[in-house]
Design a protein around this nucleic acid. Structure first.
Lengths: 244, 244
DNA sequence: CGATCGTTTGACAAGGGTCAAAATGCGTGG
DNA sequence: CCACGCATTTTGACCCTTGTCAAACGATCG
């Protein structure tokens, strides 16, 4: 049914969902099929659209196929904290139980495409993949706590950028030293617990020090290893048999 | 097998594990039995003992029956971030998948008692209870991110104390306006992303303002509602049919 | 009674916030 | 193709919350 296309120099745009889950768990062919099937039925959302509302019931598990979204909370007085980002291949509400309520809002950062995630029977490879995906998410939340609690501005930026590059690389959307970053400094500030003014100054200092460049919506690391040393960065490992 | 004892004025020391899970989900009698049985086999650990080591495999799901523990990460240079606390009734590693690795260390804060959590077959009330427990945990992690990212020192303290009181109340270990807090100001600092010096000063200011008292290891709120207003505190609600 | 751990205090430094305005970029309509 | 309007980035001056360092104080324990 699917025809492999090798004509141009274009890399085959593999499904980020299938790619990601396959890297988390060796999927049974039936489960791979189910995912492929689920992706046929896509839904698009414009930038800024609210996909999930805080305190509302979460009806079904979905997956993000394209675009970026953020999970965030807004306080009474307008302060906002972004808890984390949803990137292509990520699941939305996978860790859902009966009648569960959304713990935070989810909003599209740019144009976004989703599909419904296929149900996974207990014991299947797909169910294991969902569990690992949830474990990754928990891991990222913990990393976020450590960043906000014990890192200064420069470390927060470096650590977060490295983590984001790694997540994108997992679905083939980042190179070793560069990746697209479709967000404003204001969004970055609300992610890292800073003000946009301070994010700006910190970025400039890091640029001056040759730690990164950011032009045309693309982050580049002139020397990624140096950056990783700086914050003692470790790739997320959630289970024994993770790749590399 | 269990004899109900009503002789003295002593309240029956109900199992915190059974209490907590019962409040999260209406448990089938078989599941209640399984929990009771599991608790027979207890294990005690001294204060400071490391129950779980970061990056090590997590073999089984356990439950905390008595005492306090903390989940934490320590950086190369000694900085430490406490991600959250484990209180009586909490599960340890419930969200585990095959071959999963601990995302953070867990250490006993005082003398601690654990048992092995009974396995839950898919579809049972126990499995649902575990899922909700995991959802609560995720909720607390998100609250922690918001606290560290957007709250100042006083708000962090207030919000965290209120949350902790609520969690203890869930297992009958806290009154409406007071609860035991068996930790040092240093531990509090590493939880809230502050220094112990600043925690100390902030606590004093809050005492002066009549927001709280802390004597003999017990926190007291002279006016809990005022404190809740101050930080717009909302009890954690994870699913539609949570109690009240 | 010293030793140790935790709390408290003081003086000072600094990272990051605030406010306001200027520059830059960019999509859209004329 | 240009001009306008809006969003975003950048800069400057100033201030405040929180961190740092060091010492004193208090309680607990062998």
């Amino acid at each position: 049914m699917t025809r492999i296309r090798r004509s141009g120099a274009l890399p085959l745009p593999a499904s980020p969902l299938l790619t990601r889950l396959s890297r988390l768990v060796r999927l049974a062919s039936g489960d791979r099929e189910a995912l492929g099937l689920a992706e046929v039925n896509q839904r698009r959302w414009p930038a800024r659209h609210e996909l999930v509302t805080e305190h509302e019931p979460v009806r079904e598990t979905r997956a993000l196929i394209a675009g970026w979204a953020m999970q965030h909370r807004t306080l009474r007085d307008g302060r906002r904290q972004i808890l984390g980002f949803l990137l292509p291949g990520d699941l939305i509400g996978a860790d859902r139980q009966a009648h569960s309520l959304a713990a935070a809002a989810i909003a599209a950062l740019d144009a976004v495409v989703t599909c419904v995630a296929p149900a996974a029977a207990p014991g299947t490879s797909l169910s294991e993949a969902y569990a690992r995906s949830a474990a990754m998410e928990r891991h990222h939340l913990m990393a976020q706590v450590t960043r906000l609690g014990r890192f200064d501005a420069r470390e927060r930026l470096a650590d977060w950028l490295l983590e984001t590059r790694e997540r994108l690389a997992l679905v083939g959307l980042a190179a070793a030293d560069r990746f697209p970053l479709p967000v404003t400094q204001e969004v970055l500030a609300d992610t890292l617990g800073l003000t946009s003014v301070h994010v700006n100054r910190t970025l400039q200092a890091m640029r001056r020090d040759g730690l990164l460049a950011w032009r045309d919506g693309t982050i580049t690391f002139p020397d990624r290893l140096r950056l990783e040393m700086m914050v003692d960065y470790r790739p997320a490992r959630v289970s024994l048999d993770d790749e590399a």
